[in-house]
Design a protein around this nucleic acid. Structure first.
Lengths: 114, 114
DNA sequence: GTGACACGCAACCGATGGTTGCAGGAGGGT
DNA sequence: ACCCTCCTGCAACCATCGGTTGCGTGTCAC
């Protein structure tokens, strides 16, 4: 049996946090953002956002470049695509197992009806 | 623009933890399991597993029924299917945004070449 | 009835998501 | 040049959570 889909735990835990998912959404929509600009669109403080940006940066999902007195962050498309692939991978693995269970259950039911 | 996919944060945070994902895998493969039986297949203690089973139970992903001196847990197929759907939903939302950004970028590039 | 096993509860510890507070650097107006 | 504003980074602090150990209790088997 194939082992469970190989999952990058750092990547997953990065997108596992609701706040970070929200930030990724905002960055995708706006294209670019800073800790301050993001915090204005969210119910958390700038410092919290900054910490999350650090996490996303270390996970490679986001890239920050200094620009004058502010620091602009952008989504790394390739890495986010990888993350999406991981979501699909885990999902389809469970899906496959559910199908298998369902088939087994159906088989048992048929067997009992004989 | 469609708002970001509606996501059940409890459900998501339940499956966000690597240990809990592992437990769901084991329960799917074995069909049924107890805190003790699961802990024997994982690098954590029975108590840790029990806590996670509590989280999964509250999230509805798993159902536990007392049976003599042990408590058997089984995956709730419907809820897990819902979780899979959420993963797919968030993934495809990001995917769509990536596509959209790409189209915009291409459009801008064409514009600049005029 | 006694031993073995599975469970639940409680206390404790480290990491993390969140806050407030403060010092410092880059820009803009006068 | 100077000051004011604004964005940033660093530090301290708190609550929650994943994990552990320890202990008391209940159920099965002999």
């Amino acid at each position: 049996m194939t082992a469970v889909a190989e999952v990058d735990d750092d990547l997953w835990s990065a997108i596992g946090d609701p706040t970070r998912r929200r930030m990724l959404d905002l960055l995708l929509v706006d294209g670019v953002g800073t800790a301050t600009s993001l915090s204005r669109q969210m119910p958390v403080t700038r410092q919290a956002v900054a910490k999350h940006l650090g996490v996303l940066d270390r996970a490679g999902l986001v890239r920050g470049t200094p620009d004058g007195r502010e620091r602009r962050y952008r989504v790394d498309d390739v890495q986010l695509a990888r993350a999406v692939a991981q979501l699909a991978s885990v999902g389809s693995a469970w899906d496959a197992r559910l199908q298998r269970i369902k088939r087994i259950a159906e088989a048992i039911q048929r067997q009992q009806q004989d």
